[in-house]
């Protein structure tokens, strides 16, 4: 009798792991639109936030910032058009093939081993490296969250961003 109970439990466990396949649905950018209707974006009221922004990451703790940026990467369609303000380290990625520079604000987690880069496009005419700060300098950027497709992948960026280099 006991044997059958254990087998039944093991079967339940096996079934559950199969159910886990659903996690992929949410992480797949093409399918995330399905979840948008079900999950309304919650932006808690933050009295310390910059009124010009919809989501002010500069007033959150670093653990919260990292988690919020991760949420933005998982379901970018929920944040399209929102004005985001973020603080982090200035970072540049140069694409050799397209000979193009990508600029990002780097946000580290509490253990400082994981980081999320939030790409931004500085509004106005600026030349790299003359007009930009040194890599690793702390900057605050504010821009409109948008997504774009490149080489079959979806990327997130802040458009028309303002940038302030912190002292």
């Amino acid at each position: 009798m006991m044997k059958y109970q254990i087998i039944a439990i093991l079967c339940c466990v096996a079934l559950l792991t199969a159910c886990g396949k659903n996690t992929e649905i949410v992480q797949n950018p093409e399918d995330t639109a399905q979840t948008t209707a079900e999950n309304e974006l919650v932006i808690p009221e933050n009295p310390d936030a910059d009124p010009a922004s919809d989501i002010d990451l500069t007033t959150l703790s670093s653990t919260m910032v990292y988690s919020q940026v991760a949420a933005m990467m998982y379901t970018p369609e929920q944040y399209e058009g929102k004005i985001i303000k973020a603080k982090g380290l200035f970072s540049v990625y140069h694409d050799e093939f397209q000979n193009k520079d990508y600029f990002a604000v780097l946000i580290k987690d509490a253990t400082a081993c994981c980081s999320q880069g939030l790409e931004f496009v500085w509004s106005g005419d600026h030349v790299y490296p003359d007009d930009y700060p040194e890599v690793g300098k702390e900057i605050t950027v504010m821009g409109t969250f948008a997504t774009y497709e490149e080489d079959g992948a979806t990327y997130c960026q802040l458009l028309d961003s303002s940038m302030i280099v912190d002292a």
Partner: peptide
């Protein structure tokens, strides 16, 4: 980011704060 992946798996990092809804349901069940 291999070191980030390893660090995240070994010490948890903020994994618990980046769960998706299906993952939460799986954990609950």
């Amino acid at each position: 980011n291999i070191s980030g992946d390893v660090c995240s798996t070994l010490f948890g990092s903020t994994s618990i704060l980046t769960l998706t809804k299906p993952e939460v349901w799986l954990c609950i069940i």
